[in-house]
Amino acid sequence: MKKDSNLYIFMYASIMVIIVAAVLSFTAETLKPIQKQNVKVEKIQNILSSVGIKSTKQNAEEMFDKYIPNNNRILINSKGEKVEGNAFNINLKIENSKAIDQRSLPLFIVNMDDGTKKTIVPLLGTGLWGPIWGYIAFEPDNNTIFGAIFDHKGETPGLGAEISKDWFQKPFKGKTIFEGDKFVSITVHKGGHGAAERAGDTKHGVDAISGGTITSKGLEKMVYESLEGYQSYFKENK
């Protein structure tokens, strides 16, 4: 067959595509379990670090069982009642697409070393380029933030990606999400360093990222929408 005939080219391309597809799907399938485990361990480490517990890849699962035993990973509904299921396995993306009173809301109760119980709420939202997520840990009053961590899939480095940095996350500590009995969530203030303070919002406000406005606003929306459903639970468990 001539090398520049259309038939040859068609056959060459088809065979090549089939071989490549087979090789790629084989690789992806073989490596999937290891990749899944990596993601799981990272999730555990994220959850633990929101209450300041440092863990390594090796001991992450062990620490998780120690501080947040299986029956502390609970699901509630928007009325604050416990429902069946495990908070770790819940798919936030699916839950967030439901109406608030239909959602199963995950909660992690941490038995801290000092005997107190902190509550961790997972968050999921949208930044500029893709998903952003995080975990907020609350003091036993379920109002004051004890710690928060955020991460992202592909926000702009140096701008939106700064949400995963300490300087952005630290100010969340000590902020409250209720004003009296009213749920106000956390506001992200534009205007550079000290913007929240200048706006006179020291109780529920933090500084936005200069140049990362859409990510900052996305984060504000994520915090609000993720915490909204927990209002009754938080009020009952002050």
């Binding site: 090398k3 520049d4 040859y8 080219i9 060459y12 391309a13 090549m16 595509v17 490549v20 090789v23 790629l24 690789t27 992806a28 490596l31 290891i34 990749q35 990596n38």
Partner: peptide
């Protein structure tokens, strides 16, 4: 054996496949 007219496409497919494999291996290990 590579037909000259689709030379670049063939090269791209090979490179792309290799890169995806490298990416998957890195994600795992």
């Amino acid at each position: 054996s590579i037909p000259d007219r689709i030379r670049i496409i063939v090269q791209l497919v090979i490179v792309a496949a290799l890169v995806i494999i490298v990416d998957q291996v890195l994600k795992a290990y």
